[in-house]
Write a protein that binds this DNA or RNA. Structure first.
Lengths: 201, 201, 201, 201
DNA sequence: TATGAATGAGTGTTCATTCAT
DNA sequence: AATGAATGAACACTCATTCAT
C-alpha cells in the first residue's frame, strides 16, 4: 500500500537527515512520486513523522508481545522481553533516531509516543507484568520488592542501554548484552556476604 | 564574563525552544546585546550550542567528582555517585534537553559530548572506578563480575533513568529513586533461593 | 442542466472566497460531484469564472431590458433603468464581488466583461438610449446636452453607487437611493438663480 | 528613505501584477535589495500592500485638500475638488489598481481603506463640506437639498468615473471630463420647462 | 569592540490541471 | 461520461551569517 511505503521511506529518511533537515521532497524522490502525493496521505510533515514513530512503537510492542506471549515462567518471560527489546533495536536503529527527533522537535507534547503508546501507559500490559512478578514473588522466586520498582528499573535500564548503544556507538551483540543485563538485574552486584549484611540493615 | 553569561542564557533558551527553533536573536535580546556580538564570541550557532553542552557536561563531571572524591568505601562511592547523578539532573533539566538536541541535530558527530567528555571516555576516570570495583571484588564485597560490566550496566541504568524522568514526566524525588536503583543494582531481584540456583547453573 | 448548476455555485463560492482563494474543489463539493467533472464543462478555472461573470452581466442586461422595454416616455425610461439597476445589485451582491475579482485577477484583458457585454459596448443598446434622449431633447424636455455625456455621467454615477454601496457597507433601500440620484441627475444642485447665471456664462 | 522607496516600487509592482501574482522578490529585484530586507520594514506582504494603499489615500487627501484649501466660494470649491480628484487619478492610475486589489483580496476587512481613511469617514472633513454646502443653500445658490445627498451622489459619481476610466479604458482628458460632470451635476439634465414641472409635482 | 542592517538560501504547503480507469 | 488520484510549479516567510560603521 502507498501509505506503508511512504512510512517506510519516511522512517529511513527522517532517521538519516533528522526531522528538520528532511525536505519532504527527499522522501518523495526515491519513491518516484510527487511531494504533493505524500501530502495526500499525511496532512503535514509533522503528522507524517509522528505516524512513522507510532508505527515503530507498535512494531516494538508486537515484537515483544510475540516474544513473551507463550512464555509462562515469569523469569523466562523477563529474559525473553529483554532479549527481544535489545534485538529489536539492533534491527531497527532508525527508530532510535526517530525517538530522539521526536523529543527534540515536539517538546510541547506531554509525553513521547514511546511512553504514550508503550507498555508503560497500557494498563493491561502493565497488569500482565505486574501479576507475573507478583506470582514470582509469592512463589519465593523473586525478592519482596514492589513490582512497580522492578518494572521501572528494568525499563530505565533497557531504555538507557538502547540509547547508549546508539549514541556511544557501542556494538556489542544483543545476546551478550542481554546476558550482562540479566546477570546484574537478577543477581545484583553484591557478593553473598555483602548481600546478607544489607538484608539485616 | 561575557562568555559565561552568553552560555548561561544559551543553555536556557536552547532548552526552551530547541536548537532549530532558537533564533540567535532570542539569546541576544534578554542579554541586551546585539546578535552580532554573540558571533564575536562564538563563530557559529553550532559552536555556541556545543560549547553550552560541553560546559554542562563539565559541570556534571565536577559535581559527581566532588560527591565521590572523599569517599573511600567503594560501595559508598557508587551510592554517592548515583545520588549525585540523579540530583544533578533534577537540578539541571535544561541539560537533558540539550543532550537530546545535540543528538537530534548533529547526527554526524561520532559520539555525543556526554560520552566523549564524560567519565566513559576518560581513562583516568574509568581507571579510578575500575580499581575501586576490583578492590571491592577482591575483598569479597562484590561478586566476581567484570568491572566493565558493572560500569556499563550502571551507566546505562542512570542514563535511561534520567531520560525517562524527563520524557515521561516522572517526578519522584531523587533520593527515593536512588534507593530503588541501588536496591536492585546491588542485590538483584532474585530471591536467595533463586540466586543460589542461578549460581549453580 | 449541469452547466447552470455549476455556474450558480461558482458564482456563490467565487463571491464568498474570492477568485484566488477558491479551490475548484470548493465548488465541486457542495454539488457532490468530482472536481474533474467541472473541468469537463469548463476547460480552466479562469473560463469557469469568466462564464459566471458573463452570465451575471447577461442577467443584468435582461433585467434592465425588461424594466425598460415597454416604457416609452424617455424620462420614465431613465427612471425605470436607474431603479432596475440599483434593485438588481441589491438582489445580486455576489455579482459585485465578481466584477471586482475579475478586474483584480485579469488585469491584462482590455475591458471588463461588464463594459464589454454591457450596454456601453452594444451599439443597438446605445442607439436606443441615444435616440430616446435625442427625442427628449428635441421635444424640449431635456437640456441640449450631447446624449453621450448624459449616458456617460449616468453610467458612472450608477457604477460608482453600486460599488460604494458594497464597499462602504451602505444599505439604503434602492428606491430611496434611486430617488436621490434622479433628483440631482435631473434637476442638478443649482438653485434657479444660479442656474440662470450659469446659462448666460 | 528605504521605507518610501519600497512603498513606491511596491505600488508600481502590485499595480502591474496584482497582489496575488506579485512575488515580493519582484519588488526587491528592481530596488537591488534582498527580499528579506523588505521583510525588515514590513512584517508581511499583506501589511506592505496595505501600507502602500494607505499612503496612496493620504496622498489623495492631501492633494484634494491643497486644491480646495484656499477656495472660499462653495461652488468653486466643488469644482476644484472634482478637478483635483480626476486629475489625481489620471496621474496615479496605479492607485486605482490597488483599490481593486484591496477589495479583491481582503474581503473580510469591514471597509476599504479608501472609505476608512477618506473624507467620507472623517468627521471634520465631512463637516467642512457640509457647512460649505449649507452656506450655499442658505444663500440661495444651491437648491434646498440635504447636503448629505449632494455629498453622496457626488462621491459616487466621482468614484464610478474613476473606475470606469480605468476599466473601460476611457482616456478623456480630466479637464473635459470635469466640465461634463459639473455641467450635469450642477444644472441637471432637465430643460427649464421640465424642471419647473418637476418642482410643482 | 560592538552592532544594526542586509540578505541568500532554504522549505512546508497549496492547487490548477491531467490522466487512468 | 465521471472521477479519484497524482503532481509540478509556486511563494511567503525565516534566519544564520556577514559587513560597514
Amino acid at each position: 500500500m502507498r501509505c506503508e511505503e511512504i512510512l517506510d521511506k519516511a522512517t529511513e529518511v527522517f532517521a538519516e537527515h533528522g526531522y528538520r533537515n528532511t525536505d519532504v521532497q527527499y522522501i518523495a524522490d526515491p519513491l518516484v512520486i510527487g511531494k504533493a502525493t505524500i501530502y495526500r496521505y499525511f496532512p503535514t510533515k509533522e503528522q507524517l513523522f509522528l505516524a512513522a514513530v507510532e508505527r515503530g512503537v507498535s512494531l516494538l510492542n508486537e515484537t515483544i508481545g510475540r516474544a513473551v506471549d507463550r512464555v509462562n515462567d515469569p523469569i523466562a518471560k523477563m529474559t525473553a522481553a529483554i532479549r527481544a527489546y535489545l534485538e529489536f533495536f539492533e534491527n531497527h536503529p532508525d527508530l532510535v533516531e526517530l525517538f530522539i527527533q521526536e523529543r527534540a522537535e515536539f517538546r510541547d507534547r506531554p509525553k513521547a509516543i514511546y511512553f504514550e503508546h508503550g507498555c508503560d501507559s497500557k494498563e493491561d500490559c502493565k497488569n500482565e507484568w505486574r501479576s507475573s512478578l507478583v506470582g514470582a514473588i509469592s512463589k519465593g522466586r523473586l525478592r519482596k520488592i514492589p513490582p512497580e520498582r522492578i518494572m521501572a528499573v528494568t525499563s530505565d535500564l533497557l531504555y538507557g542501554t538502547m540509547f547508549t548503544n546508539h549514541f556511544a556507538g557501542r556494538d556489542k551483540p544483543f545476546e551478550e548484552q542481554a546476558r550482562d543485563i540479566q546477570d546484574i538485574l537478577f543477581r545484583g552486584i553484591f557478593s553473598d556476604s555483602e548481600r546478607r549484611k544489607a538484608k539485616n540493615s
